[in-house]
Design a protein around this nucleic acid. Sequence first.
DNA 1: CGGTATCCGTATCGATACTG
DNA 2: CAGTATCGATACGGATACCG
Lengths: 115, 115
Amino acid sequence: MLATEKIEKKYDAAADCPIAATIDVIGGKWKPIIIWLLIQDTKRFGELHKFIPGIALKVLSRHLKEMEADGIIIRQAFAEVPPRVEYSLTEKGRSLTAIMQALAVWSNDNILGKE
Amino acid sequence: MLATEKIEKKYDAAADCPIAATIDVIGGKWKPIIIWLLIQDTKRFGELHKFIPGIALKVLSRHLKEMEADGIIIRQAFAEVPPRVEYSLTEKGRSLTAIMQALAVWSNDNILGKE
DNA sequence: CGGTATCCGTATCGATACTG
DNA sequence: CAGTATCGATACGGATACCG
C-alpha cells in the first residue's frame, strides 16, 4: 500500500478498527488453539499437528507463518536429521495471555451453558 | 443403529475451543465496530450503516441477525411510518466491553506503531 | 426507512500426494 | 520430520435492484 499516492483510501475494518486488528492476529480458525498450546509450552510442528485434530498441514503451516509475521511466535529450526522445528511465543505473543483467558472465561459464562 | 453410522464427532475449533467460540461471536469482519458503536449508544439501522463506511446492507443485516441470535444485541422495531428499528446491546453484550477495550489496547501497544 | 433477493468474486479451509 | 504442491469445496463479503 503506497502512502505517497493520494488514493481515496477505503475504510478497512481490519486495519482501521483497533479491535478488529487484534482479532485479525488471533482470529484465524485455529490460531486461538495454537496460541493456547504455545502458552503452555514450546512445541514442535508435529506436536501441534497431533494436538489439533483435523487441521490440514497446509493450514497449520500458513497460520504459523502468519503468526510469525505478526511477531507473536518464533520459529526455530535445528539442522539435524531428522529435522526438528520448534515454535514458541514471543514476549508479544505472551502478552496475549490475559486476553485469551478473558475470552475463555466469557465463553464459559455465556456460551457453554447454552447447548 | 448402524455401527458405521457411529457419530464420530469431528473436532470443531469454533465449538470446542472456548476462546474460538468467543471470537466467533465478536469476530465477523464488522462485528467489532458494530459492538463498539452500540456500547456507546443505541442506534438505528441507518445510523449503523452511516457510521460504518463501506459495509454492504446485506452484510450489516446478516451480522445483526447473528448477533441477535447470539444474544448480545436486541432488535426493537417500531410500527411507525416511516419504520424505525433500533439496535442495542443486551447485558450479555455489555459484558464484552472489557474484552473489547483489552483488544483495542493490545492493538495500540503492538500493532499501530508498526506501519 | 429497513430491509431481502440475486448474482458474483475472493478468501479460506481441507484432503491427498509428494519433496528436502 | 517438516513441510510444499495441487486441486477442490465452501464460507464470506460486496454491488445492485427491488419490496413492505
